[in-house]
Design a protein around this nucleic acid. Sequence first.
DNA 1: ATTGTGGCCTGCCCGC
DNA 2: TGCGGGCAGGCCACAA
Length: 262
Amino acid sequence: MPELVEVETYRREAERMLHRKVSSVVADDGWFLKEATSPEALTDCLVGETFSTARRIGKLLLLDVHDSEHVLGLRFGMTGRLVVDGGAVIQELLYSSHRQDPKFVRFAINFVDGGRAEISDPRRLGGVALDPSVKDLGPDAADLSLAQLRAALHGSQSPLKARLMDQSRIAGVGNLIADETLWKAKLSPVQLAGTLSAAQSKRLHHTLVDTIAELQERGGSHMGDLMSSRNRDGVCPRCGTALSREQVGGRTSYWCPAEQVQ
DNA sequence: ATTGTGGCCTGCCCGC
DNA sequence: TGCGGGCAGGCCACAA
């Protein structure tokens, strides 16, 4: 489910997992274990240990094992959520069941103190990996510099939106953040990424960073100003023009054909 | 190397 | 009420 904004919320939730001794790992769903991670390896590396830090790169949540080289990586796909100690914070998720059905729990960690952290993911598009590879992730979108954005776009013949969502170039931008940002910056998703002018890339940069910060404050990537118009009858909230709806970068995209032009 | 496509997996909502 | 189709905020393997 989530994009960077939701995973950052989960990272904050995951801070409640820190400095607590792990008693057991529940990893019964083999499909959910990625990058050749085995239940045995998870048990060996985590039981009796504590986590020292909760970090995030893009949509990947990382928990460092204290006094160890090991890192636990959590991905949430489109419908996954993190629930620590029964979930003081129940995050509203689009496209995910609102029920707290135990059958959706794909992975869990029990703590010696009786608490528990679990990943609930109806669609099973998320996953867990021990020592996940992070070399293919670009710089995090939340604090991306202008130079990093320019480097990510430079020379690209991909549609701008596809490039923004390419996690190896920029980490964390998903479909909703991309549409919201491009709409706010008045840039077309189908303009080739390498063709932005200096002024356009500068505008895109501050709009992207500002939009992410704003969505974080509002509590989710579905809280954007374009969100309520992302449907077949949607019109531009600014000018009232009927929105274009097409696949760009493999994802359904909405944009204003009057304002978001090259 | 870069870019695009299909598929994974499951639940929900709409129209018939 | 039941059923089929289409849709979904992600990612990975593969093809051109």
